[in-house]
């Protein structure tokens, strides 16, 4: 039972389209993804909502069967919302108390995953589920860190100062690493912290492309001369 509604506990096979517009039973729009291997170990800790499937070996087997049945595809993209079994249970735990303070990110990530599960170009899902125990931490991390629509939206528009998060006070995980990586790649501007920059004038002068927009979180947009050259010629 890869997907489970966190409100009523109804389960859906992987790749199911039923859940795309919310749970048909209770209308809930939060689902947790539980790979087949996870049920044995973690069902107890997570605390199944009422009416959920028992955590017997049979259910795991059923889940694999169910996953394979509707189609041969399961979705790497869908899987992104579901990290390793361990992380999965931790991440999704807030969903158990769904009505308390549901995080938008969990919510949107889940619905994204649900939406992308529809994508037809995916590999065989059964195999993936079986392999998941071998997954290393890097993969697990990559799976769990889905860019939220909120973040995408923020990066794509001009930053409204009123909404600007005080990144200095609340550093988001990964921002520092990202900043370092960018600094290594583009030494023309070193972003010390938001609002503090060091500029390498020679580099800026020597570069063909130039920076046209710095983003709040340390990213920046550059204009590549080749990009418009190809378009125009």
């Amino acid at each position: 039972m890869p997907h489970q509604c966190t409100s009523c506990g109804r389960t859906f096979p992987d790749g199911s389209k039923e859940m795309l517009s919310g749970c048909p039973d209770c209308g809930g729009n939060k689902f947790q993804f539980k790979p087949a291997g996870a049920t044995d170990n973690h069902a107890d800790e997570v605390g199944q909502p009422s009416g959920s499937a028992p955590d017997s070996p049979d259910s795991a087997a059923d889940a694999s069967g169910a996953a394979a049945e509707p189609s041969d595809r399961t979705t790497p993209t869908g899987d992104q919302a579901a990290p390793t079994p361990d992380e999965g249970s931790v991440d999704r735990r807030p969903a158990d108390s769904a009505d308390a303070t549901p995080s938008d990110q969990v919510e949107s990530a889940s619905s994204d995953a649900a939406a992308s599960a529809d994508s037809p170009t995916e590999a065989d899902g059964t195999e993936q589920i079986a392999d998941r125990s071998d997954e290393d931490t890097a993969q697990a991390s990559a799976r769990s860190e889905v860019v939220s629509p909120d973040e995408l939206d923020r990066a794509s528009r001009d930053v409204d100062p009123a909404e600007t998060p005080p990144a200095e006070e609340e550093p988001q995980p990964g921002i520092d690493a990202l900043r370092d990586e960018l600094n290594d790649q583009f030494e023309s501007i070193r972003i010390v912290s938001p609002g503090q920059y060091e500029l390498n004038l020679m580099e800026l002068y020597d570069r063909q492309e130039y920076i046209i927009s710095l983003q709040e979180d340390g990213r920046y947009v550059i204009e590549m001369p080749d990009a418009w050259g190809i378009q125009d010629e």
Binding site: P161, T164, Y197, L201, L204, Y205, D206
Partner: peptide, 24 residues
């Protein structure tokens, strides 16, 4: 205000990059 100062700082940095590009 800090928000305005941070924004001004960012725009100034973009401006320097642009000025250097123009010089070239």
């Amino acid at each position: 205000e800090k928000d305005d100062a941070v924004r001004r700082s960012r725009e100034a940095t973009e401006g320097v990059a642009e000025a250097m590009h123009w010089l070239r």
